[in-house]
Simulated scan of single mutants.
Amino acid sequence: MPIKIPDHLPARRILEAEGLVVMSEADAVRQDIRPLRIGLLNLMPNKIHTEAQLARLLGATPLQIELTLVRMSEHVARNASADHMAAFYRPWSDVCGERFDGFVVTGAPVERLAFEAVDYWDELRQIFDWTQTHVHRSLMICWAAQAALYHFHGVPKHALEQKAFGVFRHRSLDPASPYLRGFSDDFAIPVSRWTEVRREDLAGRGLTVLVESEETGLCLVNDPARGALYMFNHLEYDTDTLRQEYLRDGAGPLPANYFRGDDPAAPPVNGWRSHAHLLFGNWINEIYQTTPFELEAIGRRDLEAA
């Protein structure tokens, strides 16, 4: 289960302590195979936690994964150290000439702003378009999923009367989808957002709803024409992440269905970890089965559809 990440990235120590195989550059070269190149545009405030969460899931595969951490070219992250960003992240302007088998864009704490009011919106739109010519498969999470749907399809987001916050039951709507292979009919997923995308706004756009919740609505949408998955919720979250958000927000309403007996002093139980590994494992497997061997052919939709 190898993943290649920078030697001194803090997430490396976390993953090694969990038993995940993290490769050195020398070991990766010795295998003499082409790794799957996965890029991660990390827009979340806590960079280190998000790096570990996603590297954990991307690395839980028999395939060799090479993870590249990417940042916006001009935007300066306010909640991450400049040294960390300089040491481990490459600006998108530096990688835009390269090709990736997979590319992940995270959520961001700008959800209640209009998309056009986000200071890096123009560059993000360029990145979305770039995924169509330089990326084989993309995975957009939470706000990034809403933003990509708005950019590609004009699908709006809608403000919620109160935050959808907690762990909610979801159902698989397309068990035959390669992305839902092995999923239960009913499963739990963490949700943390102030806005939503509505099913009626997707009609006639070639989009398929894969996962949905009666309580919190759409969760996972497939956009096959663009090689994209849109995940509005947070299977990648650690057990403690919702608790940290609850404390960060001044101990407002409790996250639903999360603390035992709704007691914030009680430890939460992670009921979604296995499905997180399933989704990411299925996504990586689908990339491996369909990506061109030659990097130069990645992003050419005519070849991928052949």
Rank of each mutant, 00 (worst) to 15 (best):
Y258T: 02
L40A: 10
R13N: 01
K47M: 03
Q64T: 13
D174A: 14
L279W: 03
P91V: 05
I284G: 05
M1K: 01
D119K: 11
L210E: 04
K157H: 07
A28F: 00
A108I: 12
E98R: 15
S73L: 04
V197S: 06
D186S: 11
M1T: 03
I65M: 05
M1S: 11
A251S: 13
L229V: 11
W194Q: 06
R30H: 05
I48S: 08
H136W: 02
L279F: 10
L67M: 12
F183L: 10
V118R: 00
A188E: 12
L202F: 04
L139W: 11
F232K: 12
A266L: 09
R112Q: 14
E304C: 03
A82C: 04
L218N: 03
M85Y: 05
Q146F: 09
M231G: 03
D174G: 00
P91Q: 03
D119A: 04
Y89K: 11
A176K: 14
S274G: 08
L229M: 11
F293E: 12
R301I: 12
V269M: 06
V197C: 09
L67G: 08
R30E: 12
P255V: 09
G250D: 06
R248M: 05
A80F: 01
L43I: 02
L54D: 01
S172R: 12
D185E: 15
G154V: 09
A228G: 06
H151T: 04
I65A: 09
Y288N: 14
H234M: 06
T216E: 15
V155C: 09
I14S: 06
R56Q: 05
N42L: 03
M23V: 08
A144N: 13
P224C: 13
G102Y: 08
L247C: 13
A87S: 15
A86K: 01
H8E: 14
G204P: 00
F168M: 00
E215Q: 13
P178H: 06
A225F: 11
L254D: 06
L69K: 08
A306P: 05
G182Q: 07
S73E: 04
M231L: 15
K163E: 00
T290Y: 09
Q146C: 02
L54I: 07
A87N: 15
C219Y: 07
G206K: 02
F88S: 01
N270S: 07
Y288M: 10
T131A: 05
R198W: 03
E286G: 09
T61H: 13
R56P: 01
S81G: 15
M85Q: 01
R205H: 10
L173Y: 07
S177I: 06
R34N: 08
S192R: 04
D240Y: 13
Q126S: 10
W283F: 15
A26W: 07
G102V: 08
A276Q: 11
N285K: 14
L20V: 14
L36V: 10
P190F: 00
A225H: 03
V269P: 03
V105D: 02
R137G: 04
R169N: 11
R169H: 03
P62Y: 12
P109W: 05
P91F: 00
F115W: 15
G204W: 07
H151P: 09
A145T: 06
G182M: 01
R34E: 08
H84L: 15
A114M: 05
P156H: 14
V167M: 11
